[in-house]
């Protein structure tokens, strides 16, 4: 019994366990992955919005992938306010120039990065958005300034198809 030599049976044990583990993993993965977004959910990946009726100082909220997207046509005051902010004052430093390529238009997910509520327009200490759930304040560029949210509101992939239409996604 004290012999330490690897036996034929040890090899069989190891090989069987290894093959069994791979087999089990191959069965478990489909059971886990079935919970990920399915093909029909992924198919709704982009949406086109007509923004011709939107006047400066107003926000349009549209649904994209089940989430609200804020399309804000900003006034010159709001743009100036957003661009005057120093980077060191920001919790999640991002330049307004990077968030709104066309300064008049701010397009972002209307989802608070804390726990996913929809922030309210024209509210809060920074004239931007305020989340009623846990009190996060966002500025006119949708950047987090005060409260528990860790990041700025996310800017999704979007483009102007023509002067009046934005394609999100």
């Amino acid at each position: 019994m004290s012999e330490k030599k690897t036996k034929r049976r040890d090899f069989l044990f190891t090989a069987t366990t290894a093959v069994g583990a791979v087999g089990a993993a191959a069965v478990v993965w489909p059971m886990i992955d079935q919970m990920n977004p399915d093909a029909s959910v992924k198919a709704l990946a982009s949406t086109e919005v007509d923004v011709s009726a939107l006047t400066p100082g107003n926000t349009l909220t549209v649904l994209w992938r089940g989430k609200p997207v804020f399309i804000r046509r900003r006034t010159q005051d709001e743009i100036d306010e957003a661009r005057a902010v120093k980077m060191e004052d920001l919790i999640h430093p991002e330049k307004d120039e990077d968030r709104a390529k066309n300064p008049e238009w701010l397009v972002m997910l209307g989802v608070c990065t804390h726990l996913g509520c929809v922030p309210l327009n024209d509210k809060g200490d920074y004239n931007g958005w305020f989340c009623p759930c846990h009190g996060s304040h966002y500025d006119t560029s949708g950047r987090i300034r005060k409260g528990p949210a860790p990041w700025n509101m996310e800017v999704p992939k979007y483009e102007f198809v023509n002067a009046n239409t934005i394609k999100i996604g």
Binding site: I32, P37, D38, R65, G66, K67
Partner: peptide, 17 residues
């Protein structure tokens, strides 16, 4: 979170699971 939701927000797949 996406996996829990089965989508990009709480929706029908979330409800059924």
């Amino acid at each position: 979170v996406t996996w829990l939701w089965g989508g990009y927000s709480v929706d029908n797949p979330t409800l059924t699971r």
